[in-house]
């Protein structure tokens, strides 16, 4: 409680607590004002926040530009989808299997990718993601390119995922859990080693830390939480398709992380909110200026990204004042 009160003294704390409170009670608000669409947008925001938090572990704290993170979402989604298509609808089975598959895959490709540096790393992670993408589009039995309608995971007696509000709260609780885990992680010895290797790999190696292994574990963890986001995404729309892991989605995730503030705990959350707010509100805004312009909102959004990359390195987080750590 004392921690919460001291957090409320900084602009960052106020914004974060306010944002989390709004997100926590959102289904009540949307019900009161009968804004069902807003609830579905918010569900997506929360799910993409989880994905972005997981990417932030390797991208923000590890300094490794992984350009294939959407593949883990896809693996999570497809594990749920394939199991459900084969008649295994219990979430108690689906979810652990999905996460396990993602961890195994992340460990495998991490072990290969982490041997490379810089732009080679960007490209090899992208290539592995494309590999998964094409594999999924080749699965004719599970919809191929078109994707597949699936039935949602079942947790009998616990929660019905078809209930929009209940599903939203589940996603929100999982987001809070992910954020909590992430904050414990980065403030642990493990997190300090990871961040140390980001700023000076040679020095960390000289100090005797097996940097490669630390990074591999971080990569696998990021894969696990990415898969969690994918599981939720599949259950949100009751639908899986290769499109959920196209490389543009991986790009979107990087945009969300950088937009929010790279290497900031709540950065991905700010980023996801901002990203979807822009996506939802920029078109009508442009339409107000001139009818028909709204359709072409990405003409504005694209250069906006360029400006952010050039002039706003710290993202939204840096607008909230200096960070304590």
């Amino acid at each position: 409680m004392a921690g919460l009160l001291s957090a409320l003294r900084t602009p960052r704390g106020i914004v974060t607590v306010f944002l989390l409170l709004v997100l926590a009670v959102l289904p009540l608000l949307t019900q009161a004002f009968d804004q069902r669409y807003l609830l579905s947008v918010s569900t997506r925001i929360v799910i993409w926040s989880i994905a972005a938090v997981s990417l932030n572990v390797i991208l923000g704290y590890g300094g490794l530009v992984s350009f294939g993170h959407a593949a883990f979402l896809g693996i999570g989604g497809y594990a749920v989808g394939i199991l459900s298509a084969e008649g295994f609808e219990s979430g108690w089975l689906q979810w652990p299997v999905a996460i396990l598959v993602a961890v195994v895959w992340a460990t495998l490709i991490g072990a290969l990718s982490l041997r490379t540096r810089g732009v080679y790393f960007i490209m090899i992670t992208l290539a592995f993601a494309q590999l998964v993408y094409y594999l999924s589009s080749g699965l004719a039995a599970y919809g191929g390119d078109d994707g597949l309608n699936i039935s949602r995971s079942r947790f009998p007696g616990l929660i019905d995922l078809r209930d929009k509000a209940a599903f939203y709260w589940l996603c929100f609780v999982l987001l809070c859990g992910t954020l909590w885990f992430c904050s414990r992680l980065v403030h642990s010895r493990f997190g300090y080693v990871l961040r140390g290797a980001k700023s000076n790999e040679l020095r960390m190696t000289a100090l005797g830390f097996p940097v490669f292994r630390y990074r591999l574990v971080a990569f696998a963890l990021a894969g696990a939480f990415g898969a969690l986001a994918g599981i939720l995404l599949a259950n949100d729309g009751a639908y899986i398709s290769p499109a959920m892991m196209s490389w543009v989605k991986s790009g979107d995730l990087i945009v969300i992380v950088v937009l929010g503030g790279i290497g900031a705990l709540f950065g991905p959350l700010y980023g996801a909110v901002a990203f979807f707010v822009v996506e939802e509100f920029l078109p009508p805004l442009l339409d107000l200026l001139h009818r028909g312009w709204g359709e072409y909102w990405q003409i504005v959004f694209g250069p906006l990204l360029v400006m952010i990359a050039l002039y706003a390195r710290g993202g939204i987080d840096s607008l909230l004042g200096r960070r304590r750590d």
Binding site: V65, I299, L305, L310, R313
Partner: peptide
């Protein structure tokens, strides 16, 4: 020109923005 001295992440982000721009254009 403004991106040469930046790190790869900035370059990915900015040129990703360019893709969106050109596709929509």
């Amino acid at each position: 020109r403004r991106l040469y001295a930046r790190d790869h992440l900035d370059q990915v982000l900015a040129t990703f923005g360019l893709i969106l721009f050109f596709n929509e254009l």
